[in-house]
Nucleic acid binder design. Sequence first.
DNA 1: ATGCTTGCAAAACGTTTGCACAGGG
DNA 2: CCCTGTGCAAACGTTTTGCAAGCAT
Lengths: 165, 165
Amino acid sequence: MERLQQKHTPDDVKNAFRRYLRANGIKDTGARRMILDAALDLHEHFEAEQVLYLLRERGLKVGKATVYRTLPLLVDCGILKQVRFDVKQAHYEHAYGEVAHDHMVCRRCGLIIEFAADKIQALSETVAKGHRFHVISHRFQISGLCWDCSIACPIAAGPLEPGDG
Amino acid sequence: MERLQQKHTPDDVKNAFRRYLRANGIKDTGARRMILDAALDLHEHFEAEQVLYLLRERGLKVGKATVYRTLPLLVDCGILKQVRFDVKQAHYEHAYGEVAHDHMVCRRCGLIIEFAADKIQALSETVAKGHRFHVISHRFQISGLCWDCSIACPIAAGPLEPGDG
DNA sequence: ATGCTTGCAAAACGTTTGCACAGGG
DNA sequence: CCCTGTGCAAACGTTTTGCAAGCAT
């Protein structure tokens, strides 16, 4: 469902990053390359701390601040995408050459299901047009219960009914 | 599901809160009532600190911690809705008896446009059904440029193209 | 009377920043 | 060589928590 498009090789992505850096007069440093490498080796939805942890695990000495300063670059050039769940810390996922998708998050077990964003994207455009708004991106997230949890849990508390007793 | 579209009086909401507290064995305290009052007098999208500020302005002594402990209760019973923009702090808006809506946020000037969520809600259900997921709520946010800013700003940087130079 | 609630302050948390040094162009 | 990038630690702002005292039930 999510993988009918061609993936890019890690080298493709690294080259793209290099091009981006050059095009913007940003230096191509060892730390930035190491951070990109780590980010590419992390999957699903990772956070800044995990990048740092992976680097440490590999014996690479990169400061926390540098990770926090580099991730926005990777977002900026389209290699990563920042995803905000309900937690305070930011999460990231690969964006380069991926099909746009959104997330369903199970409130009970935290399971994350991805689904194609094409319909929502089209709907965004329609809605935006009616308000003279120029869409750059959208963020769509469904919160609820996955199949297993909806069986385990009779009913998740719904909002209060005005007339109930 | 909230099915009402008419506005409720503040008293309706306060009564609903009282019922919610009683139903859950939570105490109906002065601090909680004052926080609800303050939240009802704030409009648009406010943050915890604004609730605290309004209380102080009224000469009411309520601790910051209590505000942070009470807002989740108001969310839980459907009076408030937590909205997460790209900033770190949470925002809240009235949810009780309001028509469900989502937001468009202008990246340049921060303008927030609200629009009806009915179509997105329907789409949520369709998508969720295909994944055997039970929808409790959704969060949909369009990020881009409002009309004025799209004129002031030529073009917001798009993601890197794999083949560009 | 009981134990949930409160307020205060301090901790926790992810993230940002100031600064002196290192390293890329 | 210059200036950007780096690492460390300290600062930051929001949110959470420990605790003694307060108050609703």
